[in-house]
Structures are given as structure tokens and as C-alpha cells.
Design a protein around this nucleic acid. Structure first.
Length: 286
DNA sequence: GTCGATGTTATCAA
DNA sequence: TTTGATAACATCGA
């Protein structure tokens, strides 16, 4: 759900709303959310002011004065919402940042997979959740991209989902990018031609930029910090479109399972590699 | 009421 | 290095 474009949109919407704002106090209603935080937000955040908001992969990095940074990972269903403090408390609200303007920055998360950590800004680069992240898909150059994948023998889809290889892609944007580049998700990366990898590099960047432009994909839960849903779901060509016609050739999109993730493909536009063809026949996929 | 699926990530086993 | 399984959790639809 929140992948790179969605996290980027939350960051941008947050920037407009809370930059320069000061925290009065913090209330934590579900400990597991801040369980692994090196510094206790309840203790260290009162009096701090938001100075910067950026994103690295799917991790939100909120900079505060006094050399502190708030890291937020939305995982599946996390939301950061800015609301008037009198707004009704919605279900699954786990952390509330009370702002001196009388508003709330609220962290909601139905499935409780997301997390928040307060850390010292100077240790950010060594932070375990950040240090191992691969390059940003929108910043990596063609040559480095191709090189990174040619040397790997894993299937291309799990590789694209691996945050240490490339930071920020999730299930939706991997399926959309592979379709646009006409590459089968099971193709071993090392056996994909440089031409196709070049095409994939372009497809990923185009898809991500377009999705950011559309404020992300809202399938069910995603909202920006102003509560606004995205519209990129309307531009999906394969994700969530099983049995509907492929926008390129008209054959019905099918849903298969790749590395135990739901995967949407057009079997005509994305030809199965030889080794994969057998397992696709023997393992019923849906 | 039960089951399986949902999508992200860490961790462990092989 | 790669693959697969499992677990964290709430909700929804069959």
C-alpha cells in the first residue's frame, strides 16, 4: 500500500502542514508502535519543532530541532493525519502528537505493522532501517541500474521488492513497471537483456513519477496527511485488474503467485522464461 | 464461525 | 546467494 509514491505524497502534504510547528506533548496508545525507539518520544518530543520532512525508500524522516529525527514506516496500513484536536478520534489511532496550534498529528494503523522511532539525527546514516537501503529508483542512473540487476540470479520480481537492491518499490509498482517493460516477473535477472533492463529502468521512473503526480494509489486505506486519497489506481494497467483485458493486447490479465505475492501479468505481453514455464503449468496458480 | 487472502519486513532454515 | 516458510495484525469476503 504505501510505497514510494504514497510515502512521498504523505511527506509533501505533511511539509505544507506542520513545518515550523511545535509539539506540546505526545500520547502513545499502543506501545508496540514505538517499541524499538532508542529515545522515548513522550519524553523527548515536547517543545521540539518540525524542521524538515523527507523520505528515504518507504521511510519517512521528520527532522526536529535539537538534532532529533522521527522515523516513520507506514508498512501496510499506517497513516499520518493532521487534524483539529477536536476531530473525533478514529479507530486504530495509536499515537497522537499534540501541536501547540491546537491541532493533532495522528498516527493510525489498522494492522499495527508500522513503527515510529525517535533517533539522533547524526546517527541516521548508520540506522539499521536506513543504512542497508539500496539506491532511490528515481535517482539511480541507467548504467548502474542495469549493472545491479545483471549480476543477480534471482527472479526479477523478488529482486525489485528487495529494499536493499532498490529502495521504495512494493507490490503494486513492481507489477505495473514489469508490465510496462514487458518483462515476466519470474525471469532471472541475469538473463534479462540490457535492452529490457534499460526499458525497465525507464518504466519504473515513469510509473513512479506519474503515481506521485496522481497523489498515489488508494485501494482502500491510503490517504495523505490531509485525508485525501490518490487516483493512480485508475491508471493501473495490471494491478488489481485480473480477468480484465490487457490494455496493450486485449488478452485477460491473470493473477499468479510469485515469491508468495499476488502478481498480475499479461501472458502475451510478458513472456514466461523457459524455466518458469514448467512450474507455471504444474502449479495451479489461481 | 472458519479460512484464506491482503502487502511489508525481519528472521530463520535449508 | 537464493529460496521458502513463518510471524506480526485486523478486516473482509466466501
Amino acid at each position: 500500500m504505501p510505497e514510494l509514491p504514497e510515502v512521498e505524497c504523505v511527506a509533501r502534504s505533511l511539509r505544507k502542514r506542520i513545518l515550523g510547528e511545535t509539539i506540546e506533548r505526545v500520547s502513545v496508545h499502543l506501545d508496540r508502535v514505538v517499541r524499538d525507539s532508542p529515545l522515548n518520544p513522550v519524553e523527548h518530543l515536547p517543545g521540539r519543532t518540525f524542521e524538515s520532512i523527507r523520505r528515504r525508500g518507504k521511510v519517512m524522516i521528520i527532522g526536529l530541532d535539537g538534532g532529533l529525527s522521527l522515523l516513520v514506516h507506514l508498512r501496510m496500513t499506517g497513516q499520518l493525519l493532521v487534524l483539529p484536536s477536536k476531530a473525533p478520534l478514529e479507530k486504530h489511532t495509536h499515537v497522537i502528537f499534540h501541536l501547540i496550534s491546537g491541532r493533532h498529528l495522528r498516527y493510525r494503523d489498522q494492522r499495527q505493522f508500522g513503527w515510529i522511532q525517535l533517533v539522533e539525527s547524526r546517527s541516521l546514516d548508520e540506522h539499521p532501517k536506513i543504512a542497508r537501503l539500496g539506491p532511490e529508483p528515481l535517482e539511480i542512473g541507467r548504467a548502474e541500474f542495469v549493472e545491479r540487476f545483471t549480476v543477480r540470479h534471482r527472479q526479477i520480481k523478488p529482486l525489485l521488492l528487495d529494499q536493499t537492491v532498490l529502495a521504495g518499490l512494493g507490490n503494486i509498482y513492481v507489477d505495473e513497471s514489469l508490465f510496462r517493460a514487458r518483462i515476466h516477473p519470474l525471469a532471472p535477472a541475469s538473463r534479462i537483456s540490457a535492452i529490457k533492463l534499460n526499458r525497465l529502468h525507464g518504466a519504473i521512473q515513469a510509473v513512479l513519477l506519474k503515481a506521485i503526480d496522481c497523489s498515489g494509489s488508494t485501494l482502500d486505506y491510503f490517504r495523505d496527511s490531509g485525508g485525501r486519497p490518490g487516483t493512480f489506481q485508475n491508471e493501473h494497467q495490471v494491478y488489481g485488474r485480473e480477468e480484465l483485458p490487457c490494455p496493450r493486447c486485449g488478452r485477460p490479465i491473470i493473477k499468479i503467485r510469485v515469491a508468495s505475492r499476488g502478481t498480475h501479468i499479461c501472458t502475451r505481453c510478458q513472456r514466461a522464461p523457459r524455466e518458469a514455464a514448467r512450474s507455471l503449468r504444474t502449479v495451479p496458480t489461481r
